[in-house]
Computed example of a mutant assay.
Amino acid sequence: MKNLLFSAVFLISGTLLAQDNPKEVKQETEVTTVKTNHGDKTSAKSVKVVTKETSDIKLDKNNHDRVKSDTKVEKEVYVDNDDNTGYQFSTKETYYISDGGSYIFSPHNQGFGINHNQDNATSVESAKSWVSSNDEYYIVEGEAHSGIGRFNANGDFMVEYYNKDTQKVEVKIYKKN
């Protein structure tokens, strides 16, 4: 009886866990090493960039073809600029889309910067954020708007700010890419 009960619990819990949305994860690692000759000594400095793309796998209900879904891109940069054998974590960037533009969220010591990605080669800082006393909210200061921001359940970043032109509180949403 004990084995039967254990088997039933195992099958039910396995069925519940199998109901999660399947995700596709692509990860690419690129390492660049630069060697410098100092006359009597040669030093090597390495930069490792790990790019990870995550997206939900969604199927069309009618014909079961795959449907395009949002993709979240995270880029982690590691630097090895000393003589030890390991890399030191440098930064992590996450990409978002808002109003048809692409934005890069780059962390710093007290929050993150929001950079407008004008093309694949250049980006311009459009706002900075700092963690507030309530860890769920960020104080955002930018050229176009300043206000209070937070991440919603979907991973989108929402900034509430006062628009002087319309004299209303508005919300700008940076959708997770």
Rank of each mutant, 00 (worst) to 15 (best):
T71N: 07
Y162Q: 14
I97G: 00
K35T: 15
Q27V: 10
D65V: 09
Y87K: 07
D135F: 10
Y78E: 03
D80I: 05
K52H: 09
E74A: 11
E74S: 12
V79N: 05
N3W: 08
N109T: 07
D20L: 10
K164H: 11
N81G: 15
D99T: 03
I97Y: 01
G113M: 06
Q88L: 08
Y96N: 02
S69I: 08
F105W: 04
K61I: 10
H116Q: 11
S123P: 00
K61F: 12
A121R: 12
L11F: 11
V50K: 05
T15E: 08
V47P: 00
T91V: 13
D165N: 09
M1P: 09
Y96V: 01
F157S: 00
N81C: 10
N134P: 06
Y78M: 05
K72V: 04
P107I: 07
D65M: 11
I114E: 04
K176M: 11
N177W: 04
D119Y: 06
G142Q: 02
V131L: 10
N37T: 12
T122W: 05
E24L: 14
E53G: 09
E76N: 02
A44P: 06
T54Q: 08
N177Q: 14
N62H: 15
Y162I: 11
N134G: 02
S126Q: 01
D60Y: 06
K128H: 15
N84M: 11
D70S: 07
G147E: 03
V47L: 11
N81M: 09
F151R: 05
V31W: 00
D40K: 03
E160C: 04
F10D: 10
E170L: 15
Y138R: 00
A153Y: 05
N109H: 07
T122I: 02
V67C: 00
T32A: 03
N152V: 11
G111Q: 03
T91N: 15
E143I: 08
A144D: 06
Y78S: 05
N154F: 11
V31L: 07
